[in-house]
Amino acid sequence: MIVRLTYITFLPENVDQAKRVYRDQVVPVVKVQKGNLDCRLLEPMDNSNEYISMTTWETKDDADAYHTSGTYKELVDKVRKDFAKNPTLRVYTTESILEHA
């Protein structure tokens, strides 16, 4: 499984709008992409404006296809005006320790 984390800092005055766009426009599009397992916005508990967009994918190929299809950029552009700074994307693979026990 592949996990893509996009670290986002929103402008304080735009947080509610950005969350609404994410929920109503981003999540539905991501969830129908081939290989997508989950899409959610992680909200900070410390009242900061630092959020994480998390998507999980069956395979690296699925995650790469989503990223290179242009869909990722289109969705980021929907909330770009709400950013306090450019987002940072990090990609991880998951591996269960129990699988190797």
Rank of each mutant, 00 (worst) to 15 (best):
Q33Y: 01
V26M: 09
P44R: 11
L41I: 11
D16Q: 12
V27F: 03
N36A: 08
D64S: 13
N86G: 08
S53D: 14
T6R: 02
E50Q: 14
S96I: 04
L41A: 08
A84S: 10
M54W: 00
T59N: 02
D46P: 04
T94P: 05
Y22A: 06
H67R: 10
Y72C: 09
S96W: 07
G35W: 00
L89M: 10
P12Q: 03
D64M: 09
H100T: 15
R80M: 06
V76P: 04
M54A: 07
H67S: 09
A63E: 05
T68I: 15
H67G: 10
E58F: 07
V91T: 15
Y7Q: 08
K60F: 12
E50I: 11
S69D: 01
Q33C: 09
L42R: 13
V15L: 04
Y7N: 07
S69N: 01
K19T: 03
S69K: 05
Q33D: 01
T71D: 04
N49L: 07
N36D: 03
G35Y: 02
W57E: 00
A84T: 03
E50G: 10
Q17V: 15
E58Q: 13
E43V: 15
L75P: 01
N47C: 11
G35S: 00
P87T: 02
C39R: 08
N36E: 05
R80I: 07
K85A: 06
D62S: 04
Y51N: 07
Y51L: 07
Y7P: 03
E58H: 08
Y22P: 07
G35Q: 04
I52L: 11
K31A: 10
I52T: 14
A84F: 06
K78Y: 09
A65R: 02
D61P: 03
E50C: 10
F83A: 00
R90N: 10
R23S: 12
D77P: 11
L98K: 10
T68Y: 15
V91L: 10
V32C: 09
W57T: 01
G70E: 05
V32A: 13
Y51A: 04
L5R: 12
E99I: 12
E50H: 15
F10N: 05
P12G: 04
K81Q: 12
H67E: 11
T59Y: 00
T55R: 02
R40K: 15
T6Y: 06
D82W: 13
L98G: 06
F83Y: 02
T93D: 14
Y66A: 03
A18R: 06
P12Y: 04
A101T: 14
P44Y: 11
L11M: 13
P28D: 06
L11F: 03
T94V: 10
R23M: 09
R23D: 14
M54L: 12
S69Q: 00
T59F: 06
E74T: 11
L11A: 09
L11V: 10
W57H: 02
R80Q: 10
T68N: 12
Y66R: 05
Y51Q: 03
G70R: 04
V32E: 14
K60P: 01
